[in-house]
């Protein structure tokens, strides 16, 4: 992953992988039939967007590909279709996340909301292209909005958790002030 060097990188990748797998598993088992306020949460989008914000566009794109592949495979979808969307969305979110401080609280949530909208729009476009959805309609497009709002609400709790999970564990720098001498 970008910017990750040393043995901690393996653990970071492992944690990110576990995160994406768990998110995909929960998405196809729990979230798929969970409808709240006319919206359906997309845990994979939240996880992938969070990774992209915290680890950069390349890591986000890889997570998006993996998450999409898993969702399509486990959810009996067209393999590659969700990946195609999530790769592009995660990359964009990652580029946006580069300008954010790691401790930023509100903008990441907005970015996740935008990612959810973009992912929904992308999946709708693909569904129209491959014929899964026969005809575009404003109602279909508007149906994406409640899900995105729900994702933002969930991200209020999940994004800090992902940030905690993916925090870097480098060596600590200790500075001791011994009067005139600095060690």
């Amino acid at each position: 992953m970008t910017g990750v060097v040393g043995p901690g990188a393996v653990w970071l990748v492992l944690r990110a992988t576990v995160l994406v797998v768990v998110a995909a598993l929960l998405q196809v088992t729990v979230a798929a039939d969970l409808e709240v306020l006319d919206g359906r949460p997309d845990l994979v989008v939240i996880a992938v967007a969070s990774i992209a914000i915290l680890q950069g566009p390349s890591a986000g794109a890889v997570a998006g590909f993996a998450g999409g592949f898993l969702v399509d495979s486990l959810g009996l979808g067209v393999i590659g279709s969700t990946s195609l969307t999530l790769v592009a969305v995660a990359y964009g979110v990652g580029v946006f996340g580069e300008g954010l401080r790691r401790t930023a609280a509100v903008r990441p949530l907005l970015a996740i909301g935008a990612a959810s909208l973009a992912a929904g729009a992308g999946q709708l476009t693909l569904a129209l292209l491959v014929g899964s959805v026969p005809q575009a309609s404003p109602a279909l497009a508007l149906a994406i909005v409640p899900g995105a709002m729900l994702d933002v609400l969930l991200a209020i709790g999940l994004y800090p958790a992902v940030r905690l999970l993916l925090r870097r564990r480098g060596p600590r720098t200790v500075s001791l002030d011994l009067g005139a001498a600095r060690v």
Binding site: A61, F65, G80, S83, V87, Y91, V130
Partner: peptide
């Protein structure tokens, strides 16, 4: 990376 992943996804579809 982006181009490769997009291409791979498209190829998978």
């Amino acid at each position: 990376v982006l181009t490769a992943l997009l291409a791979l996804s498209f190829a998978l579809v």
